[in-house]
């Protein structure tokens, strides 16, 4: 395999890995939008909670399994408490109130984390046995840990598909999204259903956060930067559609990565080196927003509208 093709494959893997992380966040966000009609800006805070809980458990106990459990449990529990204490009061209010309240939650969580753990970033190591790289194709070495993230993300996608399309709970979730009053009239405890869905979304955000911990630095505010991309994913995929979230996330991840990797090089062939690099970096960072604009031009409700 030529080096150019090997590099392209590696960059595609990088794109899929970023996409899968975005999917874990976007799935929860889009479910909460689609079913409860709530804009939850604090979704990134749940990602941060998962990352912090796992990082602290990993450094105190040294066990990656305990860290996994702690991250998932902390994020899901925080999500359900937030739903119970704050969001439950907001379903009937308009979006501005929801945005204000969940924005307040961001400030609350960020400052809370500063009080509890300080501003210094926390560090977690990649668990033993997942360090290093494997040869996925001739000439392409790829870090094991990133492969694991891809695998987990795809497994979650499959699991969510089965849960939503094939299970009884999933049926209620789908019905709750489209015919809320009817579901309530049939005697289903919609409030409990909402809490569960919110908890599931939080759990997935926590999973994304705890898996990102060993790659990025775990720090206050880590959720906000990725949340903006997540919003882009949700809009591209179609609000409320988990399938849309998966395709949107992988699309955004791959496009973002490939633009970053190749645009400066292409520009360098037509202009001077450092100008090309600076301009290329600028263009690449605009890329996903351009993509969003293009998708919306062609399909104003996103790729997979939930209530078509």
């Amino acid at each position: 395999m030529t080096p150019g093709v090997a590099l392209l494959l590696e960059q595609l893997l990088n794109g899929v890995q970023l996409g899968v992380t975005l999917f874990l966040l976007a799935a929860g966000l889009t479910l909460v939008f689609g079913i409860m009609g709530v804009i939850n800006l604090a979704h990134g805070s749940l990602y941060m909670v998962g990352a912090y809980a796992a990082a602290i458990t990993a450094t105190t106990t040294g066990s990656p399994w305990l860290a996994l459990l702690a991250g998932l449990a902390a994020a899901a529990a925080t999500g359900m408490v937030v739903e119970f204490v704050v969001l439950r009061r907001l379903y009937a209010r308009d979006h501005l109130d929801q945005v204000l309240a969940t924005f307040g939650l961001i400030l609350f969580f960020n400052e809370g984390m500063v009080l509890l753990f300080g501003r210094q970033p926390l560090f977690v190591n990649v668990p033993e046995g997942l360090r290093g790289a494997v040869r996925v194709l001739p000439g392409v070495d790829y870090p094991v840990y990133r492969l694991l993230i891809i695998a987990v993300g795809l497994a979650v996608a499959l699991g969510l598909y089965l849960l939503i399309q094939k299970s009884r709970i999933g049926m209620l979730v789908r019905a709750g999204a489209t015919h809320r009053e009817m579901v309530r009239a049939l005697g289903v405890d919609v409030r409990l259903l909402y809490t569960l869905v919110f908890g599931l979304g939080a759990l997935l955000a926590g999973l994304a956060g705890l898996m990102a911990g060993p790659i990025l630095s775990v720090q206050v505010g880590m959720g906000e930067s990725i949340l903006i991309l997540t919003f882009v994913v949700v809009v591209i995929g179609g609000i409320g559609s988990v399938r849309g979230a998966l395709f949107g996330a992988v699309l955004v991840g791959v496009v973002d990565t490939l633009l970053r990797a190749y645009v400066p090089g292409l520009l360098r062939q037509v202009m001077a080196g450092s100008e090309a690099d600076a301009l290329g970096a600028g263009l690449a960072s605009m890329g996903v927003y351009l993509l969003m604009a293009l998708v919306l031009l062609a399909k104003p409700r996103g790729l997979f509208p939930a209530h078509a």
């Binding site: 400030l107 906000e224 949700v234 609000i239 209530h307």
Partner: peptide, 23 residues
């Protein structure tokens, strides 16, 4: 109540303004 895209994008923009309100 359904959420439209415009509202969603506006809230994304609100995120960018976050620290302003924090001062």
């Amino acid at each position: 109540m359904t959420i439209n895209r415009r509202g969603l994008l506006a809230s994304g923009a609100a995120l960018g303004l976050a620290p302003l309100a924090a001062s």
